[in-house]
């Protein structure tokens, strides 16, 4: 059973890692913690359900889902955050919470309060390895998350755009003097973050159902993952996601599934108590 639980944990952990990477992406360029991050994941699942229910082919629906949610991210930065009169840390937290509430509210009104099952992406139901049987969707999540993470690392570390993003995170004023459109870079990082969240939500939906109210909790778990690994640290985000995912799954298996959610939050609070910079270190921890 232990192996089974661990593998379940790795799969959900990868999704938390994607959310955590989304937090990092936005935070690195804008210094904003986006409380609507979890709503991207929720929307990914809901839209995936909707497109599949009207029989749009998988590849196209996945593309549409990520594009729509990515654009939503872009709009959040370009319309709302950019035009905020007095962008303090507090008002931006409040703003993104407001956006999360609106996304959640509209989703509930359009799709209702039900939890929707989403079909598996692959044509076969399950796979058997070493006598253990898993849903075939596990394969999709594993490969999907690895591709996304790989793409992100390539983008950030090996392309010109990655360097621009790094520069903007270091000194936005200097960047704008050098002719970089800082607002655009910020908007693109929001787009990428929405994209990541949407794909994560869409590929996990066949395993965990799509429902309108999972956003804030998913966001919080992604944040927990990020804190455990070291906020702002991309390697840490993946490690943190796996740690949260596996401990959640083990506690659900061996203790009780009712306390599953509490475990992730408990770990985060513990890390904030003991080592707020996380396992891999964070640049964000400036002590008062």
């Amino acid at each position: 059973m232990f192996v089974q639980y661990t593998i379940n944990g790795v799969i959900t952990g990868l999704i938390y890692a994607l959310i955590a990477l989304g937090f990092n992406l936005i935070y690195s360029t804008t210094r904003i913690v986006n409380f609507a991050q979890g709503e991207f994941v929720m929307l990914g699942g809901m839209l995936q359900f909707y497109f599949m229910s009207i029989h749009i082919p998988l590849a196209i629906s996945l593309f549409l889902v990520s594009l729509i949610v990515g654009l939503l991210g872009y709009i959040i930065q370009f319309v709302f955050i950019k035009n905020t009169k007095n962008p303090t840390e507090l008002s931006l937290i409040i703003l993104t919470i407001g956006l999360a509430m609106i996304i959640r509210g509209f989703t509930m009104i359009i799709f209702g309060k039900n939890a929707y099952p989403v079909n598996q992406f692959l044509p076969f139901e399950s796979i058997t390895i070493f006598g253990l049987t898993f849903s075939s969707q596990y394969l999709v999540v594993l490969i999907g998350a690895l591709i996304l993470a790989g793409f992100l690392f390539y983008l950030l570390n090996m392309t010109n755009f990655g360097k621009v993003m790094l520069a903007v995170s270091q000194n936005p004023l200097a960047c704008s003097i050098f002719g970089i459109d800082v607002e655009k870079v910020k908007s693109v990082s929001f787009f990428l973050s929405g994209f990541l969240g949407a794909v994560g939500g869409s590929i996990i939906a066949p395993i965990s159902f799509a429902k309108y109210n999972i956003g804030l909790i998913m966001g919080l778990k992604g944040f927990s993952a990020s804190v455990v690994g070291g906020f702002g640290n991309n390697v840490g985000a993946i490690a943190g996601g796996l740690i949260i995912g596996i401990s959640e799954s083990l506690s659900a298996g061996y203790i009780s599934s009712s306390y599953k959610d509490a475990v992730a939050f408990f770990i985060m609070i513990l890390v904030l108590f003991i080592k707020p910079s996380g396992i891999f270190g964070s640049k964000d921890i400036e002590r008062v």
């Binding site: 913690v33 409380f35 840390e89 507090l90 937290i93 804030l216 909790i217 919080l220 944040f223 927990s224 804190v227 009780s256 009712s258 306390y259 959610d261 509490a262 939050f265 408990f266 985060m268 609070i269 904030l272 108590f273 707020p276 964000d284 921890i285 400036e286 002590r287 008062v288």
Partner: peptide, 28 residues
Amino acid sequence: YPTLKLKGHYLAMATLAIGEIIYIFANN
């Protein structure tokens, strides 16, 4: 005590977590 040494979003997230934990315990 530990959370308020950090930036504002840590308190926001930590209290979000605390609220959820209390809710889960009240239910279970």
